[in-house]
Design a protein around this nucleic acid. Sequence first.
DNA 1: GTCGTGGGTTCCAATTTGGAACTTGCTTCA
DNA 2: TGAAGCAAGTTCCAAATTGGAACCCACGAC
Lengths: 155, 155
Amino acid sequence: MRWDELDKEACSVARTVSVIGDRWTLLVLRECFLRVRRFEEFQTRLGITRHLLADRLRKLVKAGVLQKVAYQDRPKRYEYRLTDRGLDLHPLMMAIVHWGDTHMAGRRGRPLLHRHKACGQDFDPVTVCSQCGEPVDARGVHVHPGPGAPRMARA
Amino acid sequence: MRWDELDKEACSVARTVSVIGDRWTLLVLRECFLRVRRFEEFQTRLGITRHLLADRLRKLVKAGVLQKVAYQDRPKRYEYRLTDRGLDLHPLMMAIVHWGDTHMAGRRGRPLLHRHKACGQDFDPVTVCSQCGEPVDARGVHVHPGPGAPRMARA
DNA sequence: GTCGTGGGTTCCAATTTGGAACTTGCTTCA
DNA sequence: TGAAGCAAGTTCCAAATTGGAACCCACGAC
């Protein structure tokens, strides 16, 4: 299986991974959520090679996660902003950060804190069930085939 | 920056990405959550080369996400199971699946459904604030440096 | 003793990365 | 008028990683 076949799999994990399943892409997205928008700034902050950065930004734009917005003419200059589709990756980012905070934090504690503007407090993300509102964990979930399952449903 | 420097960054995203920020690793984990445990079964289901599979499983074991458990002697055979640390990746997996379901589903709909055993209904994961219990989205969160921030706090 | 099975390892070619220099359009400063 | 700077890329090449396929080993079954 190659990158370009991945998004054709009948699996939402595979399809999401085809967009974000890459080290640099995830780090670029981290910066996007920290309000970084310009090529040079991504490059300096991440230490990624310009070549790869251009490639990853291009792919994210093609995937509809970022959009190029001109912020000046003569010479034309663009910046990259999260689209609504990109903003929807927020729970995924929070889940990544939270796992890192929980399992990989150094002895000095977590590098960043997240404050919920609505209640004013620093918080952790909690995943709950959309139906009953109770927290969900791995053992409390049963997976079964949906309408888009391949004929030989996996699992 | 190279793979082996990534886990030293003072950033929970970078540190998590150093463990799971790889296409095959995420697909291996998908299978783990679908109760796949054995080398051959991973290999057949994923179409990954045996070489890479061995490498990714080794790395996941080293990261404490999976553990090797002997399921027979003579000849010794092992299977790979999620540890508690691995099970904690469940919200992350759910977030990946949910984004794919929302933004990448084919016209036939989502491939898999998730049933919450506690309430018996198919559900979507919702990310809420651990303090007030209300849903959280990108625009409602303010990020600020925590105790583990580098001296020049990023953002 | 030959076949099958599970869990790997080895080898090599093809692809992807990393690093550094070069390009393009336009502005500013001397 | 010319030199220098800036943002956003692109080009080139060496080094690392992947994909594909074959090979290995311990055992058990036929």
